[in-house]
Design a protein around this nucleic acid. Structure first.
Lengths: 330, 330
DNA sequence: CTCATTAATGCAAACGATTGCTGCGCTGTC
DNA sequence: GACAGCGCAGCAATCGTTTGCATTAATGAG
């Protein structure tokens, strides 16, 4: 039913190859012919069939985007940015959600492999060797994890963790807790490493509570452990957990920030709307989405760009952090 | 590089058509041959090329999903549910975001038309005649709008609006305001119609403030008009606007719910985390996503199913609504 | 006037699969 | 013993494009 290249060719009295060239190599066809073909194509509503084109060119003009959980507000801005950037470059995006499951993740990459020119792997839960193996089956750009030899886009989580801890220590906290994220998360490991080192340097105690589901419920469930650990300030793997934690602490009769200070990570929209407003480390998710698409597309132009991009984070100080037990008297 | 059907055929010493049938019509091939082919396919890592298959069968096993704004927390749960349901039925989903723009929307449908078996049009901003026209180019299921003759999935917004207004009137409010949504939104029009009728029946005043961007900023910006209208209770087009409105009222020195009561619509996750917690009309977005996928897929089996599904909503009474000026004395 | 050069187009072989038809060998029936 | 019927596999056309090569006509140089 829809018009094919043959219909257009017939309607404009030329061979299909001329029609094809009208679109893919206009300089090879006579201006007059070209405009005739264009007119017919327009009036027939012709649109090249991408599947057919992909078959021969090997490029589908589709990208895959895999996230751990699309309902986690961290991701939508990134997806949106990626999708916009892709559209700018005449590509479409398949979005898939792994439910935080490494096996589903692997399946999805494989399932997508043949119908996309590359995959954006966001916050993968697989291990590195599997990622490397998959990267041999389909071009990959990894977001939120550093994998040697692969193009990656990451946030400078180490700096973020340092800033957050410095902020807390500066406020007079000397018993800190870290709420880790899910198993398999590179970001969670990095935060932990940096936090541990920073705490040691600053000579403050750090209790690590990990792993946890990266959700409000995960934070809520950890409230009791936080209290038991005797910490006066907590750094959470993400804002969702921080918000859940605040709620959990509230239920235990501990107020934030007067009783315990809480710092989140991500700066999701929600973190500005809660009471208290959340102190958090802002991550440039939109920029990450755009950068990842760009890398994938230029990677496709067979330059072996394995560049690793690290984006700056920023500590947003709001109302969930306050003076600790060792605060300097004002 | 990746194995094709030909490689498998060669490796197992049969014709490619036998390999093809091994997958698409197993009963037509001898059990022994089949297992040999399967073994070779497995060891070569063969996966049928969907583009090639689509070319001849006309079915891509891909679906399009178009939303107004993926960063609006209303959508991700729906996308997630749709994606899961699609995967269950061996389909993948292209997600696209229109930025609330009807023109972009039209473009996207057309761009997707050839590479998908159908499109889920969620909360469209186009007008009905354009939607009908597009539905002739590609199977469509419309979500959050009723279009005659087309398969649709909608929430029972009328009931939701009635419940919300009944709740407010019951609390003793007699001066209501309605914060409408964006231009082109069917839901917004329905809410307005129902709210107007319900208010008239209940003999209470209703000031309509519309259209507004369906975002926190949209709600925030409308705060002043709400106050000027002298309303003691407000029904907002969605939770985001309700939350923005509460913030705006707060800035004007009006407390919620003591000064003004606010009801949202959607019951996004966020609405349980704000202070005050938001009274809102819950929409079954996940169910809508699944239902829409099912309709699209069975619609594809050429039964002219133009069924219209209406899903029940539920008023969640929380803390943003309280007694109005005409409340019965307790 | 001839011949090389160039611009514009046509021709046909791919790309990787599906599918109606044909062909083959075997079984079982009359 | 001939033949219908069946199970299984091969053959080849086809889907809608792209693209290297061949062909044609027109142009310019010598």
């Amino acid at each position: 039913m829809p018009a094919t290249i043959r219909d257009v060719a017939h309607a404009s009295g030329v061979h299909i190859s001329t029609v094809s060239r009208t679109f893919s190599a206009p300089h090879l066809v006579n201006a007059e012919t070209r405009s005739r073909v264009l007119a017919q194509a327009e009036s027939l509503g012709y649109r090249p069939n991408r599947a057919a084109r992909a078959l021969i060119t090997g490029r589908t003009h589709n990208l895959g985007l895999i996230v751990a959980d699309i309902a986690n507000p961290f991701f939508p801005p990134m997806i949106k940015a990626a999708e916009g950037q892709a559209r700018l470059r005449d590509h479409h995006i398949f979005v898939a959600d792994t439910n935080e499951d490494a096996l589903v993740e692997e399946d999805l990459v494989r399932a997508m492999a043949k119908q996309v020119d590359g995959v954006l792997l966001c916050s993968p839960r697989m291990n590195n060797s599997l990622i490397e193996q998959l990267s041999r089956e389909v071009p990959l750009v990894v977001v939120n994890r550093l994998v040697a030899g692969l193009p990656c886009v990451v946030m400078d989580v180490a700096q973020g963790a340092r800033d957050a801890i410095a902020h807390l220590v500066g406020l007079g906290h000397r018993e800190l807790a870290l709420l880790g994220g899910p198993r398999g998360s590179w970001t969670s490991r990095e935060i932990r490493k940096t936090a541990t080192a920073t705490a040691r340097t600053a000579d403050v105690a750090l209790t690590v509570i990990s792993p946890n589901p990266p959700t409000e419920d995960g934070g809520l469930a950890a409230a009791e452990q936080v209290v038991r650990a005797g910490a006066s300030a907590v750094l959470a793997y993400n804002d969702l957990m921080a918000i859940g934690l605040i709620e959990g602490l509230d239920a235990l009769g501990v107020a934030v920030p007067t009783g315990i200070s809480v710092v989140g990570i991500d700066d999701i929209a929600l973190s500005r709307r809660t009471r208290p407003k959340l102190t958090t480390v802002a991550n440039p998710t939109s920029a990450a989405g755009r950068a990842a698409v760009d890398m994938l597309l230029q990677h496709g132009d067979d330059r072996r760009t394995t560049a690793q991009v690290m984006l700056r984070t920023e500590l947003m100080i709001r109302d969930s952090t306050g003076p600790g037990p060792f605060a300097a008297q004002g």
